[in-house]
Structure formats: structure tokens, C-alpha cells
Design a protein around this nucleic acid. Structure first.
Ligand code: MN
Ligand code: MN
Ligand code: ZN
Ligand code: ZN
Lengths: 133, 133
DNA sequence: AAACAAAATTGAAACCATTACAAATTAATG
DNA sequence: CATTAATTTGTAATGGTTTCAATTTTGTTT
């Protein structure tokens, strides 16, 4: 928990207990959770936790470029820590989102030279191997 | 209008008047409209148009791989015809979505060999040139 | 320590894009 | 014309997210 304090501070985020737990959850559950999944989990440690705080914290993380949001369908927004660039694959059958390894060098796209790029995402949709039986 | 009938038919979509108008709107307004923007525009030609029909038609277009949905933030889903692959850049200041010339196919991603890929999207977020003043 | 100010958290209500669903209209078939 | 299927419509419901004022916690000053 507290071992993540310096990480939050390096992103100009004051490491409150709630923020540490939310960061820890994202760090140790890389399954692109929804805000509600994070809430349900941390509520066990902080019974008074408000869902608004989860949203507030996630928005703060995003503003500080520590996390990003992944939207594959309109029903649920998912969150992911910004680590090394990788792509996401969503199976339209089982709804699972997979991490996909990607070569970073390919991401230097011409035509963006005048743009300030804060975030880049490569998203795929289709059918995963398990659902092809 | 009717000149688009054969296009819809080639995607196994029966070209009703409403569907033709919605397709025409997407074809001639490449600004990634929301469902409501499409509705507001076509309502002038079809006063009895229902917003449900707009959603139904867009979902049909997507199922037939004629259109795709772009989700950059949680408030509004945007729609785009599937033409030649290109990326999207969303300015976090003015909220405009730009087309970026990129051949997404060139992004040879390892680890997708066993997946069936139906759709690929490359999304950028940042600040556009106009908003850097 | 007490008093004050700033930041973080909470809870309930409101928001609003999207969906569900059954009725109504239109098109297709014979 | 009669029957059936397909399309469209309108309203209500859904549910994830936001708003916002109150509360609690944290930090600062005397
Ligand atoms: Mn990921
Ligand atoms: Mn586009
Ligand atoms: Zn699957
Ligand atoms: Zn801009």
C-alpha cells in the first residue's frame, strides 16, 4: 500500500489512503476494471467509501496521466494504468478484454507532428480463441 | 439518395428511405456525428422520425460492417462509416475529432494470430494545433 | 493546543444517452 | 384482398455517471 506513495507523489497526487487503495487495485488487477468493480472491492476495506470518490480519484489519475479510460462499448467505461504501450482486444462473444503486445515504434504516425498527443490507444474487436469452438 | 441503394444492398441491408437518409448523412458528414446529431438533421426530412429508429439503423449498419462506433469519452458515442482505415484524434480542449491518415493494417501486432479481428481502431487524445495558442 | 483554512470524502438527487418493448405502420407475398 | 413479415414509432425504464452541498479529514497559523 504505502509502497506506492512515492509513485503517486511523482505524478503530483497526494497519496491518501483511498487513492493508494485504488492505485493498488489498478496495479494488481490488470483486467481493466469498471468503476463499480473497483468500488465493490475497496468497499471491503473502507466501508464508508463513496462511489463518487472512486470516480473522483479515477478522473484525477487520468488528469495526471497516470491512468486512461478504455471504452469499447457504450455500457461500461474501463480503466487501465498507463504503463508501456499495448493494444486491447475485446471479444464480442465473451466480452473479455485482452492485452495485446505491440511494437511501440510503429506508433510514430506522420500527420500528428503539430498535435500534442497525451494518449494513444489501439483497439481491436472480434472473437477470441476460446470462443471459436 | 437512391444512388446509395446498391451500396446498402451490397451490405445485405434493405434500402428503406430512412436508412438511405441515415447512410447519406454519414457519407456526407464525415464529422463523426452522435446519434442525436443524425436525428436532429434527418428529422427535418422525416418529421415522424423516431430516435429509436436512428439507433436501430446504426446498430444494423454496425452489424453489417458498414459503420463503426467511436467512443472517446463516456458521454457520447460517435459513428463513422467504415472506409479506408484511418486513426482518430480527439482534442481534449475543443472536443473536435480529427481524422488522421494512418493505415491501421500496417500495425502488425504480434499475438493476434489466433484471434478473429473484425474491427481495428487507433485513437489519440491530446491538444489540437488550433488550441495551442 | 486551539482556531482557522484548504483539501478530500460522502450521500442523495439529477442527468441523460441508450435500451426495452409493445403497438402501429409499411412492405412483401401469394 | 388477405396474411405475414419487416420496419418504424413512442413511451417508459435502465443504469452508469455527474452534480453539488454537506461533512469529514488534513494542513497551517497563532
Ligand atoms: Mn491493458
Ligand atoms: Mn473518421
Ligand atoms: Zn471470447
Ligand atoms: Zn482543439
Amino acid at each position: 500500500m504505502e509502497r506506492y506513495g512515492h509513485i503517486l507523489r511523482s505524478y503530483d497526487i497526494k497519496p491518501s489512503y483511498t487513492r493508494l487503495l485504488i492505485y493498488q487495485y489498478l496495479k494488481e488487477h490488470k483486467n481493466h476494471p469498471t468503476a463499480d468493480e473497483i468500488y465493490q472491492s475497496i468497499q471491503q476495506n473502507i466501508p464508508t467509501l463513496s462511489k463518487t470518490t472512486v470516480y473522483n480519484t479515477l478522473h484525477l489519475f487520468i488528469k495526471k496521466h497516470l491512468a486512461t479510460m478504455i471504452m469499447m462499448d457504450e455500457t461500461e467505461t474501463r480503466y487501465d494504468l498507463i504503463t508501456k504501450p499495448h493494444a486491447h482486444f475485446k471479444c464480442m462473444s465473451c466480452s473479455k478484454i485482452y492485452d495485446v503486445a505491440v511494437d511501440v515504434e510503429q506508433f510514430s504516425v506522420e500527420g500528428l507532428s503539430d498535435y500534442v498527443v497525451n494518449d494513444a490507444q489501439l483497439l481491436y474487436r472480434g472473437i477470441c480463441p476460446k470462443c471459436q469452438a
